[in-house]
Design a protein around this nucleic acid. Structure first.
Length: 548
RNA sequence: GACCCCAUCGUCUAGUCAGGUCCAGGACACCAGGUUUUCAUCCUGGGAACAGGGGUUCAAAUCCCCUUGGGGUCACCA
């Protein structure tokens, strides 16, 4: 028999958008399958009915697609595969390798709390979980009692019965090496919840077997869980896949990078600015509950609305955040691949093809990595600058269609191309081009002149001052027929040569302020060209009117 | 707390498995100077690490042990 076809799978739980950590896992699974003539399976682990939503599934399927990660099979939904889990549970029950247990969640919580407090000293907060293990009380129930409970429809779970004896569970992880877990560290864990759904541990081993998964590449949080999976596989006679556990991705401050970071950012701003009233969309109750405890999180939409109202930038955590931020998918892929894997040597810029060809499990980094946004940004800048003008324009348009519709509506194709040309060299992200350029698509009377020192200095400093130059330039520009970038440059430069000692800046800055309201814009000639003569002259007049 | 994993510049890492070619290379960030019509770029130069302590060896970033630090797991969440 020849080697079985390699199969990897990405198996996220559908809650919210795809997180960068998940994206990296997906990327590695995908690259490994693609590089080894294998198949990549997408499976949605939606066995927690409270936390799963169709919207979330749709969202991260879109996120994966944007990254260029495609799959050969699926998406499979575990919620639609209950029959498979039930069949395996029944087998285990029949063989006495699993049993029903009738304790309630409350009872178990109380038991855990008792062990914790009885365990001795005052635990430091958060720590000291204690070593609670299920006491197997349900195993003592006699058949008649169980029969009766069942007849009463008493809710119950199914627990896996750990093999007897002091065995040590061993397995090999390709990144961590041989792992040993004494069975004594485990207890009879739940494999089927009271609602009839399998737990993660159970669904995962059934599906991996049924789907022929040969390589399991997943986050390090699952390393220890693997011992349970190994036991389950043995009990059911399943094959054992190759395991590779990836270390986690952290924030620069060392905390775990998580969706909660957004909530945290908003919370800090709310406290700082003493925001009191609840925001539209949530009740006073919800608001108070959120304020009272860091354990509560606001719905994502509310968090975003709040951030907008408070003027705080939410940290980019999910793939969609980076997309909105104007990062290129190929750059994110490149950067993510580098976080936890290295091709060796000095290579660090590469594309998906390269990753597929070179990605290997034995070069996965063991230690956790911090997510460095500066480096990602630098990579994005490099990729943007390496593009042709046409490519940049097309990408900029695609980004605008999704996030900045007003530019597409206001600027015609010709003006948009000028806008792209003017933005290319100065953009680190696609979004940079739009950010701060609202004046290009605003009406003349919407321009607000910034009241800053830099503005005042450019307008009133020097002799003659900026206003005087504006006043003098106004008829010059009014008489300018050729409104091309080159002609404008010629026109303004020669004015500067004659009246400003050749210092373009003393003329360009007042002009920039007049047409944009501030001191920052694309190159001045491009800006004037995009705006067109009428608007430029209008704005110069409006600016001159602010002269005191 | 128990059990387990990890450890090279501020950050991501190359080098570690097959010890010498490494007074440790690259990238991002930082600092200094320069170019530029603003912002952003761009150019030149610079500082910056083998966590600590013991071993083994002619020789250790590389092998072993301890300490310290960081992380993971301990749910009817995945």
């Amino acid at each position: 028999m020849s080697d079985p076809v390699i199969r990897t799978r990405f198996a996220p739980s559908p809650s919210g958008h795809l997180h960068v950590g998940g994206a990296r896992t997906a990327l590695f699974c995908w690259a490994y399958a693609r590089g080894h003539g294998g198949r990549f399976v997408l499976r949605i682990e939606d066995t927690d009915r409270a936390r799963s939503s169709d919207a979330a599934t749709t969202a991260f399927v879109a996120d994966l697609a944007w990254l260029g990660i495609d799959w050969d099979e699926g998406p499979y939904y575990q919620s639609q595969r209950l029959e498979h889990y039930h069949a395996c549970i029944a087998r285990l029950l029949d063989e006495g390798r699993a049993y029903r247990a009738f304790e309630t969640v409350e009872e178990l919580d109380a038991a855990r709390a008792a062990v914790r407090s009885g365990g001795g000293g005052e635990g430091d907060r958060g720590g000291g979980r204690g070593g609670y293990r299920y006491d197997r009380a349900a195993l003592q129930l006699d058949a008649a009692t169980i029969e009766q409970y069942l007849a009463e429809n008493r809710p119950h779970v199914v627990r896996f019965k750990l093999p007897d004896g002091d065995r040590v569970i061993t397995f090999t992880d390709v990144v961590r090496g041989d792992i040993e877990v004494p069975a004594a560290e485990l207890d009879d864990f739940v494999i089927q919840k009271a609602d009839g759904y399998p737990t993660y541990h159970f669904a995962v081993i059934v599906d991996d077997e049924l789907m022929g998964v040969t390589h399991v590449i997943r986050g390090e949080e699952h390393l220890y869980n693997t011992a349970r999976h190994v036991l389950l596989q043995e009990a059911l006679g399943f094959r054992r896949p190759v395991y590779a556990h990836l270390s986690l991705i952290f924030n620069p401050d060392g905390s775990k990078m998580s969706k909660r970071d957004k909530d945290r950012a908003v919370r800090a701003a709310v406290h700082e600015k003493k925001f009191e009233s609840p925001q539209a969309g949530i009740s006073r109750d919800q608001w108070d509950r959120w304020l009272s405890s860091k354990k509560h999180q606001l719905p994502a939409e509310v968090t975003e609305r709040l951030a907008g109202a408070l003027g705080v930038a939410l940290p980019e955590i999910e793939v969609e955040d980076f997309r909105r931020g104007g990062y290129l998918p190929e750059v994110l892929v490149n950067y993510l691949a580098l976080l936890g894997w290295s091709p060796g040597g000095d290579v660090e810029k590469f594309d998906a093809e390269y990753l597929i060809e070179h990605f290997a499990l034995d070069r996965i980094i063991k230690s956790p990595a911090k997510f460095d946004r500066d480096k990602l940004l630098a990579f994005n800048l490099d990729a943007l600058q390496a593009m042709t003008g046409e490519d940049f324009r097309d990408r900029l348009r695609a980004h605008g269609e999704r996030y900045h519709g007003e530019f597409l509506r206001t600027l015609g194709a010709g003006k948009f191309s000028m806008f792209a040309g003017a933005s290319h060299a100065r953009s680190k992200t696609l979004d940079d081009a739009y950010r701060g350029c609202g004046f290009l698509v605003a009406a003349d009377d919407e321009i607000v002149y910034e009241q800053t020192r830099a503005v005042r200095k450019a307008l009133t400093g020097g002799d003659p001052d900026g206003y005087a130059h504006l006043e003098a330039m106004r008829p010059v520009l009014g008489a300018q027929n050729d409104w091309s970038i080159a002609a404008l440059e010629q026109c303004v430069t020669s004015y500067a040569d004659e009246h400003a000692g050749g210092k373009l800046g003393t003329v360009a800055q007042p002009l920039r302020i007049a047409v944009s309201g501030g001191t920052v814009s694309p190159a001045i000639f491009d800006t004037l060209a995009i705006l067109g003569r009428t608007r430029v002259l209008n704005r110069i007049d409006r600016c001159l009117a602010t002269r005191s």
